[in-house]
């Protein structure tokens, strides 16, 4: 009989809540309170998340974000700035010591990305892992991923692009050189794709979630059982949201 992990479908939420929930699951799992967990979620309103080491003011046009009603949050994971709009975001929380998780960080990215790739395959999209942290199809990025390890626990979260709006993304992010902005936008349009673009039709969030569920089950040879956040996790999440992710101190720390 295959191992059972928990599946959380937390739907759409604000950026601050989303990041707080991922951290709450990480803390709960590290205390042995919950099983390995896979979570699917979306972002309302659309938001920009920046990597742990990025400078908020250097990466993001905060005035533009305010105009567009886009929230900004710093992640606990490294990596780059992401505009979260029409996408499914996944997270996985699992002990570093779990036999399915390679000790080597880069190899563990590859393993977890394998689940996303199998999910994409369910939708008829062939893709491959492009180290360090991307998944590409026909050479174009369809998923970006970021991992942290804390308290002997792995948290990896990542995007699966359902549709992409490069123009809006670039009106929200700062570019190092305004003179080459048009070229940069054209380049990124060539380098990024989405499920919509690949299949030529819109796929619903729930269909992507179903495909990803099967992808994780196949990759890790497990059974995902749908559940909810525990009371402790909800309490942690509320605390992290209020004390960290909503604060200027955290979001502007670099």
């Amino acid at each position: 009989m295959s191992e059972e992990w928990r599946l959380l479908q937390t739907g759409y939420a604000k950026a601050f809540t989303n990041m707080a929930v991922d951290k709450a699951i990480l803390v709960s799992h590290s205390k042995g309170l919950v099983p390995p967990t896979v979570r699917f979620y979306g972002w309302v309103p659309p938001a920009i998340s920046i990597g742990y080491f990025q400078s908020l003011v250097e990466e993001v046009d905060l005035e533009a974000c305010q105009r567009y009603g886009v929230d900004c949050v710093r992640r606990i994971t490294g990596g780059g700035a992401v505009f979260h709009d029409k996408e499914l975001t996944y997270s996985i929380v699992i002990a570093e010591s779990h036999p399915s998780i390679p000790k080597n960080i880069l190899q563990s990215y590859g393993r977890i990305c394998g689940a996303v790739m199998k999910g994409l395959e369910q939708l008829g999209i062939n893709s491959e892992y492009a180290p360090i942290n991307d998944i590409v199809t026909n050479g174009r990025k369809i998923s970006g991923n970021a991992q942290t390890r804390k308290h002997q626990t792995v948290l990896q979260h990542g995007t699966v692009l359902m549709d992409v709006d490069v123009d809006t993304m670039f009106s929200l992010l700062k570019v190092p050189n305004e003179k080459i902005k048009d070229k940069l936008i054209a380049d990124v349009k060539q380098r990024v794709t989405s499920i919509h673009h690949c299949l030529g039709k819109h796929i619903r969030f729930t269909q992507v979630a179903d495909a990803m569920k099967r992808g994780f089950e196949e990759e890790f040879q497990i059974h995902l059982v749908e559940g909810g956040l525990t009371i402790e996790e909800q309490t942690f999440a509320e605390q992290f949201e209020k004390e960290t992710f909503l604060t200027e101190k955290w979001n502007r720390k670099r």
Binding site: Q54, S55, I76, T77, G78, G79, I105
Partner: peptide
Amino acid sequence: IRITGDFFAYPEEAM
């Protein structure tokens, strides 16, 4: 000195 960018470092707080 302030080191920023889209790299990864583990543990993050050590930076």
